[in-house]
Computed example of a mutant assay.
Amino acid sequence: MTTRRRAPDVLRPSWWSGRFASWNASARSAAERTETRFPVVTHLTTRMISVNILDSATRLAAQCFLTAVPLLFVIGSFAPEAVRDQLVSSVSAIFGLTGASKDLLEQVYRSTDDNLREATGVIGAVMVLLSATACSRAMQRLCKRAWLVPRSGVRIAPWRWLAWIGVWLAVLMVQGPVRDGFGAGLWVAVPVTMLSQVLLWWWSQHLLLGGLVGWRPLLPGALLTGFAVTALFIGSRYYMPRAIDRSLTEYGSVGTVFTLLSWLIVLCVAIALGVTTGAVLAREPWLAGRLGDSGPRWAVDGTGRPGGTDGG
C-alpha cells in the first residue's frame, strides 16, 4: 500500500494567493498610514500626475534644443571674437566638453561666423530670437501647472518671455568662470553655482508667473531646483566628456546630438521636479505659515476673470 506524500505548502497555488493577498493588504495599510501621517506625500503625487513631469520636461528640453541652441550660434556669429570665445568656454563648461568634442564646437563657431551672418542678417537674427521665446513659454506653462494657475482668465505679459531669454543668455555667458570657481577650483565653484542657480530660478518663477505668487512661497522651489541643477552640473563634469567623446567616436556628430539632447531631458526633469515639489511644499500648512503665504492671488470668478491682479 502506497501513501502519497503531502506537497509542501509553498507549491500550492492557494498558499501563494493567500500570501499575495496578505502582502497587498499590508501595502495598502502602509499607504493609508503614510497618507494619514504625511498628507504631503499624497499632495505631491497628485501634483506630479497633474503636471505630467516627463511630458513637460521632454517638451521643455525639445524647445531648448530646437530654439535656444540655434540662438547661441546666431549670437556667436554676430558677437565680437572675445564674446564668442567666452560663449564657447561657457557652453563647454556646462556640457563638460573636452578634447575632440570641444574642438568640434570651436570649429562650428568659426565656420558659422561669416556664413551665418550673411545668410540670416539682422531680420533673421531677430526672428531666431523671437522663436526662442518658445522655450520661455514652455517654462511658463510648467510653472503655471506646478502652481495650479488657471489657464483661462490669467494673462501674463509676453515681454516676460524676452526678459527671461535675455537673463538666461547673460547667465550662460559667465558660466565658464563660475564653473571654474573664478580660478579657485571646485570648492568655490560649487557654492557660487548653487547660489546663482537658486537666485535664477527664484526670479524665473516670479517673472514667468507674472507676480501671481509672492516671493517667499517661491523660495522652496528655487532651493530644490538650484540644488538639483548644481548636482547635475557637477556630475556632468565627470560623465559628459566620456559620453560625448564615445558618441563622437562611434556615431559622429549625430551621436553627440543625441547625447546632448538626453542630458537636456535629464536637466529639465530635475527642473520640473524641483519647481513642482516646491509649489506643493509652499502650500502645506506647516510651511505656508512660515512663508506668509495666504493662498493664490488669482480669485477666478464665474466669468473666468481673475480678480486682484493685472497679470503684467
Score class of each variant (00 low, 15 high):
residue 180 D to W: 03
residue 257 V to N: 01
residue 180 D to S: 09
residue 214 G to V: 00
residue 272 A to S: 13
residue 83 V to C: 03
residue 273 L to F: 07
residue 253 S to W: 13
residue 103 D to T: 14
residue 18 G to H: 01
residue 37 R to F: 11
residue 28 R to Y: 09
residue 306 P to V: 14
residue 36 T to Y: 00
residue 123 I to C: 05
residue 92 S to A: 15
residue 281 L to V: 14
residue 59 R to Y: 15
residue 16 W to V: 13
residue 295 G to S: 09
residue 98 T to W: 06
residue 287 L to V: 09
residue 193 T to C: 07
residue 141 R to D: 14
residue 270 A to L: 04
residue 238 Y to A: 12
residue 139 M to F: 14
residue 287 L to H: 03
residue 283 R to V: 01
residue 261 L to Q: 12
residue 93 A to L: 06
residue 18 G to K: 09
residue 11 L to E: 08
residue 224 L to E: 00
residue 150 P to E: 11
residue 250 E to C: 02
residue 82 A to E: 12
residue 21 A to S: 09
residue 282 A to E: 10
residue 201 W to A: 03
residue 199 L to M: 07
residue 160 R to K: 15
residue 97 L to C: 11
residue 252 G to A: 04
residue 255 G to H: 00
residue 34 T to P: 04
residue 82 A to C: 06
residue 209 L to N: 10
residue 68 A to H: 01
residue 215 W to R: 13
residue 309 T to I: 12
residue 35 E to H: 13
residue 101 S to C: 11
residue 187 W to P: 01
residue 218 L to F: 00
residue 16 W to N: 05
residue 179 R to H: 14
residue 4 R to S: 15
residue 239 Y to L: 14
residue 13 P to S: 08
residue 236 S to K: 05
residue 297 R to H: 02
residue 61 A to R: 12
residue 5 R to I: 09
residue 80 P to Q: 01
residue 247 S to T: 11
residue 182 F to D: 12
residue 288 A to R: 08
residue 178 V to S: 05
residue 175 Q to K: 01
residue 210 G to P: 03
residue 37 R to K: 02
residue 182 F to G: 03
residue 100 A to N: 10
residue 143 C to Q: 09
residue 231 A to M: 06
residue 220 P to M: 06
residue 259 T to P: 06
residue 19 R to Y: 06
residue 27 A to T: 15
residue 36 T to D: 13
residue 224 L to T: 02
residue 231 A to P: 06
residue 17 S to W: 14
residue 282 A to R: 08
residue 153 G to R: 05
residue 30 A to R: 07
residue 196 S to Q: 06
residue 191 P to C: 07
residue 15 W to L: 00
residue 233 F to N: 04
residue 258 F to H: 04
residue 100 A to T: 09
residue 231 A to L: 06
residue 166 G to L: 12
residue 103 D to M: 06
residue 245 D to Y: 02
residue 11 L to W: 09
residue 228 A to M: 12
residue 126 V to T: 12
residue 273 L to H: 09
residue 91 V to L: 11
residue 173 M to D: 01
residue 114 D to T: 11
residue 239 Y to W: 15
residue 79 A to R: 05
residue 4 R to M: 04
residue 1 M to C: 07
residue 179 R to P: 05
residue 267 L to P: 02
residue 110 R to L: 03
residue 100 A to G: 04
residue 197 Q to S: 00
residue 34 T to C: 09
residue 38 F to Q: 04
residue 184 A to L: 10
residue 172 L to V: 03
residue 98 T to Y: 11
residue 199 L to N: 05
residue 127 M to C: 11
residue 131 S to V: 07
residue 73 F to Y: 01
residue 206 H to T: 07
residue 16 W to C: 08
residue 308 G to N: 03
residue 49 I to H: 13
residue 275 V to N: 08
residue 287 L to N: 05
residue 164 W to T: 03
residue 189 A to G: 00
residue 55 D to E: 02
residue 8 P to E: 02
residue 84 R to N: 10
residue 20 F to M: 13
residue 112 T to V: 13
residue 169 L to Q: 13
residue 159 W to N: 14
residue 166 G to S: 13
residue 153 G to I: 05
residue 191 P to N: 08
residue 246 R to V: 04
residue 164 W to N: 13
residue 173 M to A: 15
residue 270 A to T: 00
residue 159 W to A: 08
residue 306 P to C: 14
residue 300 V to Q: 00
residue 171 V to G: 08
residue 65 F to Y: 06
